[in-house]
Design a protein around this nucleic acid. Sequence first.
DNA 1: GAATGCATGTCGTGC
DNA 2: GCACGACGTGCATTC
Lengths: 231, 231
Amino acid sequence: MRLVIAHCSVDYVGRLKAHLPLATRLLLVKADGSVLVHSDGGSYKPLNWMSPPATLRVSSPDEVDLELGVVEQWTVQSAKTDDRLIINIHDKISESSHDLGVDPGLIKDGVEADLQRLLAEQIETLGQGYSLIRREYFTAIGPVDILARDADGATVAIELKRRGDIDGVEQLTRYLELLNRDPLLAPVRGIFAAQQIKPQAKVLANDRGIDCVTLDYDAMRGVDDIESRLF
Amino acid sequence: MRLVIAHCSVDYVGRLKAHLPLATRLLLVKADGSVLVHSDGGSYKPLNWMSPPATLRVSSPDEVDLELGVVEQWTVQSAKTDDRLIINIHDKISESSHDLGVDPGLIKDGVEADLQRLLAEQIETLGQGYSLIRREYFTAIGPVDILARDADGATVAIELKRRGDIDGVEQLTRYLELLNRDPLLAPVRGIFAAQQIKPQAKVLANDRGIDCVTLDYDAMRGVDDIESRLF
DNA sequence: GAATGCATGTCGTGC
DNA sequence: GCACGACGTGCATTC
Protein backbone atom coordinates (compact mmCIF):
# COMPACT_ATOMS: atom_id res chain seq x y z
CA MET A 1 0.00 0.00 0.00
CA ARG A 2 1.32 3.36 -1.07
CA LEU A 3 0.24 6.60 0.61
CA VAL A 4 0.83 9.93 -1.09
CA ILE A 5 -0.24 13.33 0.18
CA ALA A 6 -0.32 15.61 -2.83
CA HIS A 7 -1.62 18.87 -4.20
CA CYS A 8 -3.47 17.59 -7.23
CA SER A 9 -6.41 17.76 -9.60
CA VAL A 10 -8.31 14.63 -10.62
CA ASP A 11 -10.47 13.68 -13.59
CA TYR A 12 -12.58 10.57 -13.96
CA VAL A 13 -13.90 9.42 -17.31
CA GLY A 14 -16.03 6.32 -17.61
CA ARG A 15 -19.62 5.64 -16.70
CA LEU A 16 -19.80 9.39 -16.21
CA LYS A 17 -17.35 12.26 -16.03
CA ALA A 18 -16.18 13.92 -12.85
CA HIS A 19 -13.64 16.59 -12.07
CA LEU A 20 -11.85 17.57 -8.88
CA PRO A 21 -10.19 21.00 -8.84
CA LEU A 22 -6.71 21.50 -7.45
CA ALA A 23 -6.43 20.79 -3.71
CA THR A 24 -4.41 18.78 -1.20
CA ARG A 25 -5.59 15.19 -0.87
CA LEU A 26 -4.60 11.68 0.12
CA LEU A 27 -3.85 9.32 -2.76
CA LEU A 28 -4.03 5.69 -1.66
CA VAL A 29 -2.66 3.09 -4.05
CA LYS A 30 -3.46 -0.52 -3.17
CA ALA A 31 -1.55 -3.61 -4.15
CA ASP A 32 -4.21 -4.58 -6.72
CA GLY A 33 -3.72 -1.30 -8.60
CA SER A 34 -6.85 0.35 -7.23
CA VAL A 35 -6.60 4.00 -6.24
CA LEU A 36 -8.61 6.04 -3.74
CA VAL A 37 -8.62 9.84 -3.57
CA HIS A 38 -9.66 11.02 -0.11
CA SER A 39 -10.19 14.46 1.33
CA ASP A 40 -10.16 15.25 5.04
CA GLY A 41 -13.91 14.93 5.34
CA GLY A 42 -16.94 13.23 3.89
CA SER A 43 -17.49 9.65 4.87
CA TYR A 44 -15.84 6.45 3.83
CA LYS A 45 -16.53 7.01 0.15
CA PRO A 46 -13.58 8.60 -1.62
CA LEU A 47 -14.02 11.74 -3.71
CA ASN A 48 -12.82 9.71 -6.67
CA TRP A 49 -11.46 6.22 -7.13
CA MET A 50 -10.62 3.38 -9.47
CA SER A 51 -11.77 -0.12 -8.65
CA PRO A 52 -9.47 -3.10 -9.08
CA PRO A 53 -8.15 -4.61 -11.21
CA ALA A 54 -6.39 -1.53 -12.53
CA THR A 55 -2.94 -0.39 -13.58
CA LEU A 56 -1.21 2.81 -12.57
CA ARG A 57 1.03 4.48 -15.13
CA VAL A 58 3.17 7.42 -14.07
CA SER A 59 4.23 9.83 -16.78
CA SER A 60 5.79 13.24 -17.24
CA PRO A 61 3.38 16.07 -17.97
CA ASP A 62 3.15 17.41 -21.50
CA GLU A 63 4.17 21.01 -22.22
CA VAL A 64 0.74 22.48 -21.55
CA ASP A 65 0.38 20.70 -18.18
CA LEU A 66 3.98 21.55 -17.24
CA GLU A 67 3.15 25.17 -17.83
CA LEU A 68 0.21 24.77 -15.43
CA GLY A 69 2.50 23.44 -12.71
CA VAL A 70 1.99 19.69 -13.08
CA VAL A 71 5.08 17.77 -12.02
CA GLU A 72 3.74 14.25 -12.50
CA GLN A 73 0.72 12.68 -14.16
CA TRP A 74 -0.89 9.43 -13.05
CA THR A 75 -3.14 7.47 -15.35
CA VAL A 76 -5.13 4.77 -13.60
CA GLN A 77 -6.74 2.49 -16.15
CA SER A 78 -9.33 -0.13 -15.25
CA ALA A 79 -8.35 -3.54 -16.59
CA LYS A 80 -11.94 -4.58 -17.30
CA THR A 81 -13.73 -1.45 -18.47
CA ASP A 82 -12.61 1.73 -20.20
CA ASP A 83 -12.96 3.72 -17.00
CA ARG A 84 -9.98 5.94 -16.38
CA LEU A 85 -8.70 8.22 -13.65
CA ILE A 86 -6.21 10.95 -14.43
CA ILE A 87 -4.38 12.57 -11.54
CA ASN A 88 -2.32 15.69 -12.15
CA ILE A 89 0.13 16.11 -9.30
CA HIS A 90 1.31 19.67 -8.72
CA ASP A 91 3.16 19.04 -5.48
CA LYS A 92 4.02 15.82 -3.67
CA ILE A 93 3.99 16.63 0.04
CA SER A 94 4.57 13.20 1.52
CA GLU A 95 4.98 9.63 0.37
CA SER A 96 5.28 6.26 2.09
CA SER A 97 4.84 2.59 1.26
CA HIS A 98 3.89 -0.35 3.47
CA ASP A 99 3.55 -4.09 3.10
CA LEU A 100 0.27 -5.06 4.78
CA GLY A 101 -0.16 -8.65 3.65
CA VAL A 102 -3.49 -10.33 3.03
CA ASP A 103 -6.32 -9.47 5.41
CA PRO A 104 -8.10 -12.32 7.21
CA GLY A 105 -11.43 -10.57 6.54
CA LEU A 106 -14.55 -9.54 8.36
CA ILE A 107 -16.87 -11.60 10.55
CA LYS A 108 -20.45 -10.27 10.76
CA ASP A 109 -23.45 -10.94 12.99
CA GLY A 110 -26.92 -9.48 12.81
CA VAL A 111 -27.55 -9.30 9.07
CA GLU A 112 -30.78 -10.38 7.38
CA ALA A 113 -29.74 -14.03 7.46
CA ASP A 114 -29.62 -13.93 11.29
CA LEU A 115 -32.96 -12.16 11.44
CA GLN A 116 -34.43 -14.85 9.19
CA ARG A 117 -33.05 -17.66 11.33
CA LEU A 118 -34.49 -16.08 14.48
CA LEU A 119 -37.93 -15.49 12.96
CA ALA A 120 -38.03 -19.04 11.60
CA GLU A 121 -37.27 -20.34 15.10
CA GLN A 122 -39.83 -18.02 16.68
CA ILE A 123 -42.47 -18.20 13.98
CA GLU A 124 -45.25 -17.82 16.58
CA THR A 125 -44.14 -14.19 16.90
CA LEU A 126 -46.43 -13.68 13.90
CA GLY A 127 -49.45 -15.21 15.63
CA GLN A 128 -50.52 -18.20 17.66
CA GLY A 129 -50.66 -21.49 15.82
CA TYR A 130 -48.19 -20.48 13.08
CA SER A 131 -45.86 -23.21 11.89
CA LEU A 132 -42.81 -23.09 9.63
CA ILE A 133 -42.95 -24.76 6.22
CA ARG A 134 -39.46 -23.72 5.22
CA ARG A 135 -36.91 -20.92 4.90
CA GLU A 136 -35.65 -19.81 1.47
CA TYR A 137 -38.50 -21.45 -0.41
CA PHE A 138 -37.28 -21.36 -4.01
CA THR A 139 -39.46 -20.17 -6.86
CA ALA A 140 -38.71 -19.39 -10.50
CA ILE A 141 -38.35 -15.68 -9.74
CA GLY A 142 -36.31 -16.00 -6.56
CA PRO A 143 -36.45 -17.35 -3.02
CA VAL A 144 -39.31 -16.53 -0.66
CA ASP A 145 -37.66 -15.70 2.67
CA ILE A 146 -40.02 -17.77 4.81
CA LEU A 147 -43.03 -19.91 3.94
CA ALA A 148 -45.32 -20.75 6.85
CA ARG A 149 -48.80 -22.00 7.72
CA ASP A 150 -51.18 -20.03 9.91
CA ALA A 151 -53.54 -21.37 12.59
CA ASP A 152 -56.20 -22.07 9.93
CA GLY A 153 -53.75 -24.04 7.80
CA ALA A 154 -53.47 -21.34 5.13
CA THR A 155 -50.13 -20.73 3.45
CA VAL A 156 -48.31 -17.51 4.32
CA ALA A 157 -45.37 -16.04 2.41
CA ILE A 158 -43.14 -13.81 4.52
CA GLU A 159 -40.77 -11.23 3.10
CA LEU A 160 -38.16 -10.14 5.59
CA LYS A 161 -36.22 -6.89 5.59
CA ARG A 162 -34.14 -4.90 8.01
CA ARG A 163 -35.69 -1.76 6.60
CA GLY A 164 -39.06 -2.14 4.95
CA ASP A 165 -39.64 0.10 1.96
CA ILE A 166 -41.74 -0.03 -1.16
CA ASP A 167 -39.36 -2.32 -3.07
CA GLY A 168 -39.87 -5.10 -0.54
CA VAL A 169 -43.64 -4.89 -0.98
CA GLU A 170 -43.24 -5.13 -4.77
CA GLN A 171 -40.99 -8.14 -4.32
CA LEU A 172 -43.48 -9.91 -2.06
CA THR A 173 -46.31 -9.04 -4.46
CA ARG A 174 -44.46 -10.77 -7.30
CA TYR A 175 -43.95 -13.86 -5.15
CA LEU A 176 -47.60 -13.93 -4.08
CA GLU A 177 -48.77 -13.68 -7.68
CA LEU A 178 -46.64 -16.67 -8.57
CA LEU A 179 -47.41 -18.77 -5.50
CA ASN A 180 -51.14 -18.24 -5.92
CA ARG A 181 -50.93 -19.89 -9.33
CA ASP A 182 -49.88 -23.11 -7.55
CA PRO A 183 -53.10 -24.98 -6.63
CA LEU A 184 -51.27 -26.93 -3.93
CA LEU A 185 -50.38 -23.74 -2.08
CA ALA A 186 -53.15 -21.28 -2.99
CA PRO A 187 -54.55 -19.23 -1.43
CA VAL A 188 -51.33 -17.67 -0.16
CA ARG A 189 -51.37 -14.63 2.13
CA GLY A 190 -48.43 -12.25 2.49
CA ILE A 191 -46.71 -10.83 5.54
CA PHE A 192 -44.14 -8.04 5.25
CA ALA A 193 -41.88 -8.21 8.27
CA ALA A 194 -39.13 -5.69 9.03
CA GLN A 195 -37.39 -3.92 11.90
CA GLN A 196 -38.84 -0.69 10.57
CA ILE A 197 -41.54 -0.21 7.92
CA LYS A 198 -41.92 3.07 6.06
CA PRO A 199 -45.39 4.65 5.86
CA GLN A 200 -45.67 4.46 2.08
CA ALA A 201 -44.66 0.81 2.14
CA LYS A 202 -47.32 0.15 4.78
CA VAL A 203 -49.96 1.88 2.68
CA LEU A 204 -49.03 -0.06 -0.45
CA ALA A 205 -48.93 -3.33 1.48
CA ASN A 206 -52.34 -2.78 3.07
CA ASP A 207 -53.74 -1.78 -0.32
CA ARG A 208 -52.68 -5.20 -1.59
CA GLY A 209 -53.95 -7.12 1.41
CA ILE A 210 -50.47 -7.73 2.79
CA ASP A 211 -50.05 -7.63 6.56
CA CYS A 212 -47.17 -5.67 8.09
CA VAL A 213 -45.25 -6.78 11.16
CA THR A 214 -42.55 -4.77 12.89
CA LEU A 215 -39.84 -6.97 14.39
CA ASP A 216 -37.78 -6.30 17.50
CA TYR A 217 -34.43 -7.93 16.73
CA ASP A 218 -33.02 -7.37 20.22
CA ALA A 219 -36.07 -8.96 21.84
CA MET A 220 -35.92 -11.90 19.44
CA ARG A 221 -32.23 -12.34 20.15
CA GLY A 222 -33.05 -12.15 23.84
CA VAL A 223 -35.59 -14.95 23.54
CA ASP A 224 -33.00 -16.90 21.57
CA ASP A 225 -30.45 -16.44 24.33
CA ILE A 226 -32.91 -17.59 26.98
CA GLU A 227 -33.81 -20.64 24.94
CA SER A 228 -30.14 -21.40 24.38
CA ARG A 229 -29.55 -21.20 28.10
CA LEU A 230 -32.46 -23.55 28.83
CA PHE A 231 -31.27 -26.31 26.53
CA MET B 1 -5.85 13.81 8.52
CA ARG B 2 -3.96 11.22 10.51
CA LEU B 3 -2.53 8.08 8.94
CA VAL B 4 -1.52 5.14 11.10
CA ILE B 5 -0.22 1.79 9.90
CA ALA B 6 -0.83 -0.65 12.72
CA HIS B 7 -1.09 -4.30 13.64
CA CYS B 8 -4.55 -4.30 15.14
CA SER B 9 -7.89 -6.01 15.71
CA VAL B 10 -11.17 -4.14 15.24
CA ASP B 11 -14.70 -4.58 16.60
CA TYR B 12 -17.81 -2.77 15.46
CA VAL B 13 -20.97 -2.72 17.53
CA GLY B 14 -24.05 -0.90 16.34
CA ARG B 15 -26.62 -1.76 13.71
CA LEU B 16 -24.87 -5.12 13.64
CA LYS B 17 -21.71 -6.61 15.07
CA ALA B 18 -18.51 -7.18 13.13
CA HIS B 19 -15.07 -8.39 14.08
CA LEU B 20 -11.70 -8.09 12.35
CA PRO B 21 -8.95 -10.44 13.56
CA LEU B 22 -5.42 -9.23 14.20
CA ALA B 23 -3.64 -8.00 11.04
CA THR B 24 -1.71 -5.04 9.66
CA ARG B 25 -3.98 -2.29 8.35
CA LEU B 26 -4.24 1.38 7.56
CA LEU B 27 -6.14 3.48 10.09
CA LEU B 28 -7.27 6.78 8.62
CA VAL B 29 -8.56 9.40 11.03
CA LYS B 30 -10.24 12.40 9.41
CA ALA B 31 -10.64 15.88 10.84
CA ASP B 32 -14.35 15.29 11.57
CA GLY B 33 -13.52 12.32 13.82
CA SER B 34 -14.47 9.68 11.29
CA VAL B 35 -12.21 6.65 11.03
CA LEU B 36 -11.59 4.25 8.14
CA VAL B 37 -9.89 0.86 8.46
CA HIS B 38 -8.42 -0.21 5.12
CA SER B 39 -6.61 -3.35 4.04
CA ASP B 40 -4.42 -3.58 0.97
CA GLY B 41 -7.25 -4.88 -1.20
CA GLY B 42 -10.96 -4.72 -1.77
CA SER B 43 -12.31 -1.59 -3.36
CA TYR B 44 -13.06 1.78 -1.92
CA LYS B 45 -15.15 0.44 0.93
CA PRO B 46 -13.17 0.10 4.14
CA LEU B 47 -13.20 -3.14 6.10
CA ASN B 48 -14.69 -1.18 8.96
CA TRP B 49 -15.34 2.47 9.62
CA MET B 50 -17.13 5.09 11.69
CA SER B 51 -19.07 7.83 9.98
CA PRO B 52 -18.86 11.44 11.11
CA PRO B 53 -19.58 13.07 13.40
CA ALA B 54 -17.63 10.91 15.81
CA THR B 55 -15.10 11.24 18.60
CA LEU B 56 -11.92 9.23 19.00
CA ARG B 57 -10.82 8.40 22.54
CA VAL B 58 -7.41 6.82 23.07
CA SER B 59 -6.94 4.78 26.23
CA SER B 60 -4.52 2.37 27.82
CA PRO B 61 -5.49 -1.29 27.60
CA ASP B 62 -6.85 -3.02 30.67
CA GLU B 63 -4.91 -5.88 32.26
CA VAL B 64 -6.49 -8.59 30.14
CA ASP B 65 -5.84 -6.75 26.86
CA LEU B 66 -2.32 -5.82 27.97
CA GLU B 67 -1.65 -9.52 28.52
CA LEU B 68 -2.82 -10.15 24.92
CA GLY B 69 -0.33 -7.63 23.58
CA VAL B 70 -2.51 -4.55 23.17
CA VAL B 71 -0.48 -1.36 23.57
CA GLU B 72 -3.25 1.16 22.87
CA GLN B 73 -7.02 1.06 22.59
CA TRP B 74 -9.06 3.40 20.40
CA THR B 75 -12.76 3.90 20.99
CA VAL B 76 -14.53 5.68 18.16
CA GLN B 77 -18.01 6.73 19.22
CA SER B 78 -20.62 8.04 16.81
CA ALA B 79 -22.03 11.36 18.01
CA LYS B 80 -25.51 10.67 16.66
CA THR B 81 -26.11 6.95 17.16
CA ASP B 82 -24.79 4.38 19.63
CA ASP B 83 -22.55 2.84 16.97
CA ARG B 84 -19.06 2.22 18.24
CA LEU B 85 -15.75 1.06 16.83
CA ILE B 86 -13.09 -0.41 19.09
CA ILE B 87 -9.57 -0.74 17.74
CA ASN B 88 -6.99 -2.70 19.71
CA ILE B 89 -3.54 -1.69 18.55
CA HIS B 90 -0.84 -4.30 19.08
CA ASP B 91 1.91 -2.55 17.17
CA LYS B 92 2.10 0.90 15.66
CA ILE B 93 4.28 0.62 12.56
CA SER B 94 4.00 4.12 11.17
CA GLU B 95 2.22 7.35 11.91
CA SER B 96 1.86 10.70 10.19
CA SER B 97 -0.44 13.69 10.21
CA HIS B 98 -1.30 16.20 7.50
CA ASP B 99 -3.36 19.34 7.18
CA LEU B 100 -5.37 19.03 3.96
CA GLY B 101 -7.79 21.93 4.28
CA VAL B 102 -11.32 21.94 2.94
CA ASP B 103 -11.89 20.25 -0.41
CA PRO B 104 -13.58 22.25 -3.19
CA GLY B 105 -15.64 19.18 -4.04
CA LEU B 106 -16.59 17.12 -7.04
CA ILE B 107 -18.13 18.27 -10.30
CA LYS B 108 -20.11 15.57 -12.11
CA ASP B 109 -21.52 15.22 -15.60
CA GLY B 110 -23.63 12.40 -16.93
CA VAL B 111 -25.87 11.58 -14.00
CA GLU B 112 -29.60 10.98 -14.38
CA ALA B 113 -30.38 14.70 -14.16
CA ASP B 114 -28.16 15.42 -17.19
CA LEU B 115 -29.70 12.56 -19.12
CA GLN B 116 -33.16 13.91 -18.30
CA ARG B 117 -32.31 17.43 -19.44
CA LEU B 118 -30.89 16.13 -22.72
CA LEU B 119 -33.84 13.84 -23.44
CA ALA B 120 -36.31 16.63 -22.66
CA GLU B 121 -34.47 18.87 -25.13
CA GLN B 122 -34.30 16.11 -27.73
CA ILE B 123 -37.69 14.53 -27.11
CA GLU B 124 -38.00 13.60 -30.80
CA THR B 125 -35.33 10.95 -30.11
CA LEU B 126 -38.31 8.87 -29.00
CA GLY B 127 -40.16 9.30 -32.28
CA GLN B 128 -41.21 11.92 -34.79
CA GLY B 129 -43.88 14.33 -33.66
CA TYR B 130 -43.20 13.89 -29.93
CA SER B 131 -43.52 17.02 -27.81
CA LEU B 132 -42.60 17.72 -24.21
CA ILE B 133 -45.37 18.38 -21.70
CA ARG B 134 -43.01 18.75 -18.77
CA ARG B 135 -40.11 17.31 -16.77
CA GLU B 136 -40.62 16.11 -13.19
CA TYR B 137 -44.41 15.95 -13.54
CA PHE B 138 -45.51 15.66 -9.95
CA THR B 139 -48.00 13.03 -8.74
CA ALA B 140 -49.11 11.91 -5.30
CA ILE B 141 -46.68 8.98 -5.39
CA GLY B 142 -43.69 10.86 -6.75
CA PRO B 143 -42.49 12.74 -9.82
CA VAL B 144 -42.75 11.27 -13.32
CA ASP B 145 -39.37 11.95 -14.97
CA ILE B 146 -40.81 13.21 -18.25
CA LEU B 147 -44.37 13.58 -19.49
CA ALA B 148 -44.75 13.99 -23.26
CA ARG B 149 -47.26 13.77 -26.08
CA ASP B 150 -46.76 11.52 -29.09
CA ALA B 151 -47.57 12.29 -32.74
CA ASP B 152 -51.18 11.16 -32.20
CA GLY B 153 -51.60 13.47 -29.23
CA ALA B 154 -51.59 10.63 -26.70
CA THR B 155 -49.92 11.17 -23.33
CA VAL B 156 -46.65 9.30 -22.70
CA ALA B 157 -44.99 8.87 -19.30
CA ILE B 158 -41.23 8.34 -19.50
CA GLU B 159 -39.17 6.78 -16.73
CA LEU B 160 -35.49 7.47 -17.12
CA LYS B 161 -32.61 5.47 -15.65
CA ARG B 162 -28.92 5.17 -16.25
CA ARG B 163 -29.26 1.42 -15.78
CA GLY B 164 -32.66 -0.04 -16.42
CA ASP B 165 -33.63 -2.89 -14.15
CA ILE B 166 -36.86 -4.35 -12.84
CA ASP B 167 -37.33 -1.69 -10.15
CA GLY B 168 -37.61 1.05 -12.74
CA VAL B 169 -40.35 -0.86 -14.56
CA GLU B 170 -42.28 -1.29 -11.31
CA GLN B 171 -41.94 2.43 -10.61
CA LEU B 172 -43.23 3.36 -14.06
CA THR B 173 -46.09 0.87 -13.70
CA ARG B 174 -47.23 2.59 -10.50
CA TYR B 175 -47.14 5.97 -12.22
CA LEU B 176 -49.10 4.67 -15.22
CA GLU B 177 -51.75 3.15 -12.97
CA LEU B 178 -52.21 6.50 -11.26
CA LEU B 179 -52.05 8.67 -14.39
CA ASN B 180 -54.59 6.50 -16.18
CA ARG B 181 -57.13 7.30 -13.46
CA ASP B 182 -56.95 10.95 -14.57
CA PRO B 183 -59.52 11.39 -17.35
CA LEU B 184 -57.72 14.49 -18.62
CA LEU B 185 -54.58 12.47 -19.31
CA ALA B 186 -55.81 8.92 -19.98
CA PRO B 187 -54.93 6.87 -21.89
CA VAL B 188 -51.26 7.16 -20.88
CA ARG B 189 -48.59 4.98 -22.46
CA GLY B 190 -45.24 4.25 -20.84
CA ILE B 191 -41.70 4.41 -22.15
CA PHE B 192 -38.80 3.00 -20.17
CA ALA B 193 -35.63 4.79 -21.30
CA ALA B 194 -32.13 3.93 -20.10
CA GLN B 195 -28.52 3.76 -21.25
CA GLN B 196 -28.68 0.02 -20.66
CA ILE B 197 -31.75 -2.15 -20.05
CA LYS B 198 -31.48 -5.56 -18.45
CA PRO B 199 -33.18 -8.47 -20.24
CA GLN B 200 -35.54 -9.26 -17.36
CA ALA B 201 -36.59 -5.64 -17.15
CA LYS B 202 -37.28 -5.61 -20.88
CA VAL B 203 -39.43 -8.74 -20.60
CA LEU B 204 -41.43 -7.30 -17.70
CA ALA B 205 -41.87 -3.98 -19.50
CA ASN B 206 -43.07 -5.60 -22.73
CA ASP B 207 -45.42 -7.81 -20.73
CA ARG B 208 -47.02 -4.64 -19.39
CA GLY B 209 -47.15 -2.86 -22.74
CA ILE B 210 -44.31 -0.52 -21.86
CA ASP B 211 -41.89 0.38 -24.65
CA CYS B 212 -38.15 0.24 -24.01
CA VAL B 213 -35.68 2.71 -25.48
CA THR B 214 -31.91 2.48 -25.12
CA LEU B 215 -30.29 5.92 -24.96
CA ASP B 216 -26.86 6.87 -26.28
CA TYR B 217 -25.70 9.59 -23.90
CA ASP B 218 -22.60 10.47 -25.92
CA ALA B 219 -24.66 10.88 -29.11
CA MET B 220 -27.24 12.98 -27.27
CA ARG B 221 -24.52 15.14 -25.79
CA GLY B 222 -23.01 15.41 -29.26
CA VAL B 223 -26.29 16.72 -30.66
CA ASP B 224 -26.45 19.09 -27.72
CA ASP B 225 -22.98 20.40 -28.48
CA ILE B 226 -23.85 20.94 -32.14
CA GLU B 227 -27.03 22.77 -31.19
CA SER B 228 -25.12 24.90 -28.69
CA ARG B 229 -22.63 25.82 -31.38
CA LEU B 230 -25.40 26.77 -33.78
CA PHE B 231 -27.09 29.20 -31.42
C1' DG C 1 -36.07 16.28 10.53
C1' DA C 2 -38.30 12.50 7.97
C1' DA C 3 -38.89 10.51 3.54
C1' DT C 4 -37.69 9.48 -1.03
C1' DG C 5 -34.75 8.08 -4.91
C1' DC C 6 -30.01 8.07 -7.10
C1' DA C 7 -25.30 5.84 -7.01
C1' DT C 8 -18.94 5.51 -11.14
C1' DG C 9 -22.99 2.47 -5.71
C1' DT C 10 -20.17 -2.19 -3.84
C1' DC C 11 -20.54 -6.89 -2.49
C1' DG C 12 -21.97 -11.58 -2.00
C1' DT C 13 -24.49 -15.58 -3.98
C1' DG C 14 -26.82 -18.62 -6.97
C1' DC C 15 -27.48 -20.13 -11.60
C1' DG D 1 -20.30 -14.44 -16.51
C1' DC D 2 -24.80 -12.56 -15.49
C1' DA D 3 -28.51 -11.25 -12.60
C1' DC D 4 -30.59 -10.37 -8.28
C1' DG D 5 -30.86 -8.75 -3.58
C1' DA D 6 -28.58 -6.94 0.77
C1' DC D 7 -25.93 -3.20 2.61
C1' DG D 8 -23.71 -0.64 9.26
C1' DT D 9 -25.70 1.00 2.22
C1' DG D 10 -24.27 6.75 1.84
C1' DC D 11 -26.06 10.96 0.06
C1' DA D 12 -28.68 14.95 -1.79
C1' DT D 13 -33.03 16.86 -2.28
C1' DT D 14 -37.59 17.74 -1.02
C1' DC D 15 -41.47 18.26 1.79
